[in-house]
Design a binder for these strands. Structure first.
Length: 387
DNA sequence: AATGATACTCGGC
DNA sequence: TTACGGCCGAGTATCATT
């Protein structure tokens, strides 16, 4: 076992080790982000080995016409041809035409099962696990590594090996002193990457990044920053926090200043589900109340089955409407605790009537139902559970 | 004025 | 030249309550 090159508690040797990266002390926190590479596509390649080497595009077909729908994910071979998640399927087909690309419908139930097994592995390798999505999770490994980066690297390699052995897919892992840096580190090298950014390397790692590359900075924020002459993370780190607060508001202003400096105190904490929704595309655009209601009742029933399975109740009920211009509209109402969506159908109808009255012209393309403000009925209580 | 709840939008995957 | 899913959680403005 190689020596870790510790220098006893906080003694400073002001120089970043050039040959072999020798950290000066134990990190106060080590956080890892594991991101499964083009997950849906990888799972399909795993169970259909004949797909390997070909562009693979996983699609959510809406059923409205032969090819209506959007791309959920694409493997790297397809991405090289310009295919991206969220893209209309017909456009993806045009990009890859005359190639040997394959388009498959997403089988989310199966991906969920594979994901659950992988998350179980991650749970075994971490002090704390925070699942962010079906293909991404943060791990706090501070205690089990004793704050040693080398040990974190060993665990990361072990995780990669276990996932590849057991499920036949690869992942990219970023390691840093907090969640934000771990996330940014992951983006540095994928697929099948492993990137470590130690505390003393954070500033030089972030400095050259463009603000739009920072996790949590979208096009709108990036544009506002650009107008201030803020282009890179280094620029952002030098802006006075009060100026940011003035433009973006308290929470967001402080957040921007902190992430630009690589600071993120948010803990790796188990996430509770906060909402369930079901959404579907209508056969035709319409603003006919009964046609929309018919679909919403179906979706409500699906939702109710889900609530029963998971033993969850709700207080807030929302309807979701997506118009022909793909703009999303919602209406919601908070009610006494309930476990039945069906018995709230009159409320759904009223919300819809209100929306139709407000939105004189728009035609509806997709509709959905959502429940939130959840409470776990059978087991532990939450804040909203007054039972 | 401060706090918490609610309604709604936005954007990531 | 167009083309267009189904989820999720976070953020924020506004309202109600104290």
């Amino acid at each position: 076992m190689p020596e870790e090159g510790l220098v006893g508690g906080g003694r400073l040797t002001e120089r970043t080790g050039e040959q072999g990266s020798v950290p000066k002390e134990r990190a106060s926190r080590i956080v890892m982000l594991v991101d499964l590479d083009s997950f849906y596509a990888s799972v399909e390649e795993q169970r259909h080995p004949e797909l390997r080497g070909r562009p693979v595009v996983i699609c959510m077909f809406s059923g409205r016409t032969e090819d209506s729908g959007a791309v959920a994910t694409a493997n790297y071979r397809a991405r090289a041809l310009g295919v991206k998640a969220g893209m209309p399927i017909p456009l993806a087909k045009r990009l890859v035409k005359e190639g040997d690309a394959v388009f498959l419908p997403a089988d989310r139930e199966h991906y969920r099962e594979v994901s659950d097994r992988i998350m179980e592995i991650l749970g075994e390798e971490a002090d704390a696990l925070e699942q962010v999505s079906i293909d991404e999770a943060y791990l706090d490994v501070t205690a089990r590594t004793g704050g040693l980066w080398r040990e974190a690297e060993r665990i990361a390699s072990q995780i990669k090996g276990r996932i590849r052995e057991q499920e036949g897919v690869t992942c990219s892992i970023g390691i840093g002193p907090n969640k934000f840096v771990a996330k940014m580190a992951t983006s540095r090298q994928k697929p099948d990457g492993l990137t470590i950014v130690r505390e003393e390397e954070v500033q030089e790692f972030l400095a050259p990044l463009l603000v739009e590359e920072l996790h949590g900075v979208g096009p709108k924020t990036a544009e506002a920053l650009r107008e201030m002459g803020v282009i890179t993370a280094k620029d952002l780190a030098q802006v006075d926090v009060q100026e940011l607060v003035g433009i973006f508001g308290e929470a967001r202003g402080v957040y921007l200043k902190e992430i630009a400096r690589g600071i993120d105190p948010s803990p790796v904490a188990k996430r509770e589900r906060t909402q369930f929704s079901r959404i579907a595309t209508l056969k035709e655009d319409t603003r006919d109340e009964d046609a929309i209601m018919e679909r919403m009742v179906e979706l409500g029933d699906q939702l109710e089955r889900k609530l029963t399975e998971t033993n969850v109740g709700f207080r807030t009920l929302s309807i979701i409407l997506i118009d022909t211009r793909l703009r999303t509209h919602t209406k919601s109402e908070t009610l006494p605790h309930s476990r039945s969506v069906r018995e709230k159908i009159p409320i759904v109808r009223r919300l819809l009537q209100e929306w139709l009255a407000e939105q004189g012209a728009s035609l509806v393309r997709r509709v959905g139902v959502r429940v939130s403000n959840l409470s776990h009925v059978g087991s532990q209580r939450t804040l909203t559970d007054f039972g």
